[in-house]
């Protein structure tokens, strides 16, 4: 899922200092799960910023609230009155949530409290590792289920490179060499012949390098007829 991390407190404190009425809005989805922006983190940030303001003798009003999923307009709309009442919205959702609020209320200031992030897998409680970079053309069926774009430092399609040593990557000896892992996995699956097949250079047009991507399901879209007359949220 999307994994984000709270910006350093000092940075956030500086960001919000000039604003009187600050609403801190969190989210119950991805950022709650990765412990960055759920209700508890919102309450924590509210308290922390209040203490900071107290310490520096600033009069600021902080209010915290949470929506179910901040990237969905319907849920953001539910807290419109709080947003309109703010001098600053500090979003504790991922950037998607922060931008959704900003797009819906362009006159309001919306700042991010988190740094988004990675597509991360919870390796264990509290540890999320990046295993996908959203290249848009998944090939893990040819690499034993291990993504070399995300997990190889050089994103090689035909690894390993000469820097692979004892199953570790030369860039950082703590990092596993993805291609060593791929080799071992394919061996386990009796599909080692795959590693001998040479993959052509990657077509990166499906990744972010090809420009901003929009995914569409035409059959799910509402027709004009359906959209007409509904509340102007869409």
């Amino acid at each position: 899922m999307i994994v984000a991390k709270r910006k350093p407190m000092a940075e956030i404190a500086e960001m919000v200092a000039p604003y009187k009425k600050v609403k801190i809005i969190g989210c119950r989805s991805c950022v709650a799960i990765c412990l960055a922006g759920g209700e508890k983190e919102v309450k924590t940030l509210v308290s922390a910023l209040r203490l900071k303001a107290k310490k520096e003798g600033r009069r600021q009003e902080f209010e915290g609230l949470v929506v179910e999923r901040q990237c969905e307009k319907e849920w953001v709309k539910e807290v419109e009155d709080r947003i309109m009442d703010s001098d600053l919205v500090l979003s504790m959702a991922c950037s998607l949530g922060a931008q959704t609020i900003g797009d819906m209320y362009p006159k309001k200031l919306v700042f991010p409290a988190l740094n988004t992030g990675i597509f991360g897998v919870p390796e264990e409680q509290g540890v999320w590792s990046e295993k996908c970079v959203g290249c848009g053309n998944c090939i893990i069926h040819t690499t034993g289920g291990i993504c070399p774009i995300a997990r190889c430092a050089k994103s090689m399609l035909n690894g390993p490179c000469g820097g692979s040593s004892n199953g570790k990557c030369e860039v950082n000896l703590e990092v596993d060499c993805a291609w060593y892992a791929i080799h071992e996995r394919l061996k386990l699956q009796n599909r080692l012949e795959l590693i001998e097949q040479v993959s052509p250079p990657k077509d990166w047009s499906t990744s972010h390098s090809g420009g901003r991507r929009v995914y569409v399901r035409e059959d799910a879209r509402l027709t004009q007829y359906q959209k007409k007359g509904r509340e102007a949220v869409r």
Partner: peptide, 12 residues
């Protein structure tokens, strides 16, 4: 209604 099914409680 508030639960995000994050599994933190289950693990703790």
């Amino acid at each position: 209604d508030k639960c995000s099914a994050c599994l933190t409680c289950v693990r703790t």
